[in-house]
Nucleic acid binder design. Structure first.
Lengths: 137, 137
DNA sequence: CTATCATGTGACATTAAAAGTCACGTGAAT
DNA sequence: ATTCACGTGACTTTTAATGTCACATGATAG
């Protein structure tokens, strides 16, 4: 399985976006972060739909923040990315009515559920501006 | 990325293995669990290396448990599978010395680390025989 | 008005790792 | 000696993220 690295990448983008006053084009972001401009648009598009950023077309257009970073939690970003699945391991729906298979699936899921809760709680209590503050120390 | 379903699958196998007195061949396991016999051998081989099961060759050979299920925690099984990576999301090593990129990576990793700890703790406090007990209720 | 800039998006190519398959070597029991 | 069963290298298949390309859409400048 290939890991989904969008969360840290988007956080990085947002942190820089906050330091630039004028709108930033996808093209420029692509150069800054080593991404294809089209991929930038696609990724940022998710954030736009969730009200984190806005985009303007035409001359002088580009991306800018819609809310201050202090009002965006890492969890908001994670959700805006579509709440990608956290786990590389899984427990598929049991393929048989076998109770032992169910027990094995359930136990695996229980551990994953507990881990997921912690993951989301951690993301929820940190704002993107907290990261900027940490970086400055 | 495709999810790694080996943990629940192997737990299921171990639970059945405990209910069969004679050694079970890979061939038979393959039929029981819808796997290629070769894949069974490969998967169980990991468990053998960690002392959870043993295998015998030749007539009447096959797989059997080396320890009672009450002495095997889900964490033992997870480790025997090679401690596969838990997460489908990730934070790669920062590609630049940019402090903001580091902060973004670190925050993501911190949440993942907390989640991983909980995942492993949950696995550690459940034995495979606990699953059998749950299934019987 | 039209040329240019920039986003929006469908379609396709690439990549990475699990899962699955095949073939054959090794060793044990009859 | 034959059959059974594991052990394992090498390969193919599968799946979803990632990345790329081309072009439509809409906004601004002059």
């Amino acid at each position: 399985m290939r890991t989904d690295n969008r969360l840290p990448r988007v956080l990085h983008i947002l942190l820089h976006l906050d330091e630039i006053d004028e709108p930033v084009t996808s093209e420029r972001m692509g150069e800054m972060f080593g991404m294809d401009a089209s991929l930038v648009r696609r990724t940022m598009g998710g954030l736009r739909k969730h009200g984190l950023v806005t985009s303007t077309k035409g001359h002088g257009g580009g991306w800018h923040l819609q809310r201050p970073l202090s009002e965006i939690s890492l969890m908001d970003v994670y959700i805006a990315l579509g709440s990608p699945s956290v786990f590389a391991i899984g427990a598929p729906e049991p393929s048989s009515p076998c109770l032992l298979e169910h027990a094995a699936s359930d136990a695996t899921r229980a551990a994953m559920g507990a881990a997921r809760q912690v993951f989301e709680k951690e993301l929820g209590r940190v704002s993107v501006s907290d990261l900027a503050r940490n970086a400055r120390i």
